[in-house]
Design a binder for these strands. Sequence first.
DNA 1: AATGTCCGCAACCGCCTTCGC
DNA 2: GGCGAAGGCGGTTGCGGACAT
Length: 271
Amino acid sequence: MGRAPCCEKMGLKKGPWTLEEDHILINYINTNGHGNWRALPKQAGLLRCGKSCRLRWTNYLRPDIKRGNFTREEEDTIIKLHEMLGNRWSAIAAMLPGRTDNEIKNVWHTHLKKRLPQYQHNHDRKRNLKQKEQDLVNVSHVKNQNTAYRPLSPPQCSSSDISTLTTSDNLDHNSTTDVSVNKSPPENVPSLDDGFWSEVLSADNSYYGTSNFPAIIADQQFLQFPLSSLVTGELENATSSLSSCEGMDFWYDLYTRAGESAEFDVDNARS
DNA sequence: AATGTCCGCAACCGCCTTCGC
DNA sequence: GGCGAAGGCGGTTGCGGACAT
């Protein structure tokens, strides 16, 4: 892995756990409990760091862990909770007995987010882009490499864009801004990464910015609810407002439409 | 059959928070 | 209040198997 090892230099083992190590850990905890994770490996006779032991126990060896595939109900619950809580995997795991935060995080990234339209769209875009890149590479080969290929670069939200989007002092939090959702966004829109969506509603109910997103929602006229409801952590209000404006599609629409033009403004949003 | 690519998962890392002194 | 240790959390990585070419 890319990061500096913390255990190896202390002579501690890393990597997959063996059956023998599992047995040692289980036996030790069953007998003595796990009062101090840092001291546990030494006392148990394991060449592992405490952190590794804790992770192995909580994510895999704990007797109350439910193994096996997630049920449809569990998956739906995760999707709903993620919409409300963001990437608070431990909080989501607390609602699903027998499931660990790591497991839920994995199943989210590998299965569930692909079911959601906004991720599906992004996923498809990435695939299409990759295909286009390959096609262009092929074409450039045919043309004896006379044409240098440059990947498509998404339009950026510059600081001037931000000023365009944030010059509103007359905020009307009670008015409803009806933004129709563009189901076919323009071709040249910014690509969205996972961080974008997770930060729309951040983990601790407050709003965290992304590089582009703040410029788009900073103008509270775009919202059916005041941005301050996110900032001050009124999750319930925020999520109910989100659902009333078609959830993530609403955000995605704002994002894509802002991305396509620096001239994007409130009037455009209302059109 | 061989090779390349994708995907799922366990495990690791760094950062943040909590707790005790 | 300051500090260090320990625990907890979310993001990321790399291995290995499945699938495609």
